[in-house]
Each structure stands twice: as C-alpha cells, then as structure tokens.
C-alpha cells in the first residue's frame, strides 16, 4: 500500500509543477487561467495529503474557486488578445527567473529546516479546554490569536472599500448566450450552498471548517447568482441594510475585544464559561462578512444604488 501512496504523491507533485508552469507560460490567457484553477484544486489535494484539511478547504474555496472566478471575470472583460506568447516566454527572462526561483526555493527550504519543532501544537492542546471549542485550528483563529483574525477581516473590508472607491461597477455587456440553464442552476444550487455553509460553520467548533470556508462557500453561491443575472443589491436604501453585513465581522470582533474589558478581562481574553458562545457568534459574523466581501470584490466596483429594468442581463 505504501508504494501506491508514494506513486500518487510523486504524480501529484509532478502535476502541480507542470500546472504551475502551464499557468505562467502557456500561450493564451484562457488556458493559463484554467491551469491555475486546476492547480488550486490539486493543491487542495496536496494539503489533504499533508493532513492539513483546514488549509485544503480554504485553498479549494478561495484559491481555486473565488480567485478562479475573479480571473475568469477579468478575462471576460479584456478585449480579445492575441493567443501568442506572453513576455514571460522570452528566453532572456529565464536566465533571471530560474536562478531567482532556485534561490527562493533554497531560502524556503532553509526556513522550513529551522522551524521550531514540535511547534506550539502541545501548548494549544493543553489550553484547548479553556478555548470553548474542540478544534485546535478554530481555537487559534478565533480565541488564542483572534487579534490576527480581526486584522485579516479588516484587510478584507479595506480591500472592498478600496475597490468600490475606484468607480462604479462595470456593467456586463449583452449576454453572449441566452440560456435558461444558468438562472435555473443558480436557483437550484443556492439552497445547497447555504446548507453546506451553515454545516461548515457549525462543524468549525469541533472539526475542520469554520468562518473562512463557510464564508467562501456562500460567497461562491452569491457569485453564481450574479453570473446567472441576479442584481447585487448591496447599496441604496431601497434594498435594506445589507451593506452592514460587510462590516459586521470587524465590528463584532471589535465589540467583543473591548466588551470583555467591561467584564474585567484583559483585551480580547474571553471569560472561559462564555468562550464557546463568543467563538460561535464571531464565526457567524465573520462568515457573513467574508461571504459579502467576496461577492463585493467580484463586482469590481461599487454597484449602483438604483436598478432600472428587471435584471442585469436585460
């Protein structure tokens, strides 16, 4: 059995290197983007082989799914370019990039070599009963190092604000193909996206899952709905306060960080008996914000406050 697994791992590693080469060097941007998406999916498989299912979930949802959708939508808005080579294919570049790549690989190997072993895993396991959850990754993300997560959520919100401030959302042109399939697919699948997302969020307290994967899944559902012609009603007063969801994660985390001081705790230190509830509520708030941010980033600009006509596609 060990031999088969080794062959699988070697094939996986070779396929990753080949796809990375394809994504950067293939002539034609469409092929490059597809190679990048498949690279993300195989990378998720590699994380599973390295027994890091949390990172695998994030890589599949964000690396392959959300980034792939962003790249494809950017590609759709570009004018049709020549399918000839990219500047990367010039031979002169290789004399720089191959040594540079090898040097980076050497530095990373050196860094991995000097990683403290066995790391902080035992300390996390020892404090796990106080964290309110049974999954060590969630305990680190939303309790022990919740400050880092606060900043990550803040970066997502800042990115959304920056993109919206660049200008209004570019409207898609006339739909290339009129097909009832895409809207029907969006309608059938959205409840499934919601179900998977709630499941991942709930599961995060005792197994791989949590706010980031849940938010990415429901965000992907939102992107699919927009592709199918739904209107993003994120701005304007006529559609309700949905925009608040964008900053819900950050404001909830800040409220908790400061609120525990009132209870006599240090900054961001949850009382042990409330820790489970706090982590679950923060996951819910962060998951909603991540989902809305992914949809908002995909729009590539601020959506209009008023919509004329029935849907984007008409």
């Amino acid at each position: 059995m060990g031999g088969v697994v080794l062959v699988f791992d070697v094939l996986l590693a070779a396929a990753l290197i080949w796809l990375a080469w394809q994504a950067t060097h293939t002539p034609g941007l469409f092929r490059a983007v597809i190679s990048f998406i498949i690279f993300g999916l195989l990378m998720a498989l590699a994380w599973v082989r390295l027994e890091a299912p949390d990172i695998a979930l994030a890589e599949a949802a964000i690396g392959a799914g959300a980034t792939g959708a962003l790249l494809l939508s950017a590609l759709g808005r570009l004018a049709v370019t020549d399918e000839a080579g990219t500047p990367w294919q010039e031979r002169a570049d290789l004399t720089f990039w191959i040594p540079a790549g090898l040097a980076l690989l050497g530095l990373l190997t050196l860094a991995a070599w000097y990683l403290p072993s066995p790391g902080l895993g035992q300390e996390v396991q020892a404090s796990l009963p106080d964290s309110g959850v049974q999954n060590p990754v969630t305990a680190v993300l939303l309790n022990f190092r919740a400050f880092d997560t606060l900043l990550e959520i803040g970066v997502l919100l800042l990115a959304t604000i920056a993109i919206w401030s660049l200008g209004p959302m570019p409207m898609p042109g006339a739909q290339a193909i009129i097909s009832p399939v895409l809207p029907a697919l969006g309608r059938i699948l959205f409840p499934m996206f919601a179900l998977v997302s709630i499941y991942l969020l709930w599961r995060g307290s005792h197994a791989p899952g949590g706010a980031f994967s849940a938010g990415a899944v429901i965000g992907a559902g939102g992107i699919l709905s927009i592709l199918a012609g739904a209107r993003p009603w994120l701005t304007g007063s006529a559609y309700g306060p949905w925009r608040v969801l964008l900053s819900l994660g950050l404001s909830a985390m800040l409220a908790v960080a400061l609120g525990v001081i009132v209870l006599g705790q240090p900054f961001f230190a949850y009382p042990t008996h409330l820790a489970g509830t706090i982590v679950l509520l923060l996951e819910l708030a962060a998951g909603l914000s991540i989902a809305m941010s992914l949809v908002a980033l995909y729009l590539a600009g601020q959506p209009p406050t008023h919509w004329d006509g029935e849907s984007l596609r008409q």
């Binding site: 290339a176 193909i177 399939v181 895409l182």
Partner: peptide
C-alpha cells in the same frame, strides 16, 4: 446537475 448544465452551456457557447 453540474455536468448537464456545463455541457449545455459549452454547447450553446460553441454554437453561438
């Protein structure tokens, strides 16, 4: 569902 929808969309795009 995914393969039926994908095949239909690819086919329509190719025809278009």
């Amino acid at each position: 569902v995914a393969s039926a929808a994908g095949a239909s969309l690819i086919g329509r795009t190719a025809l278009a």
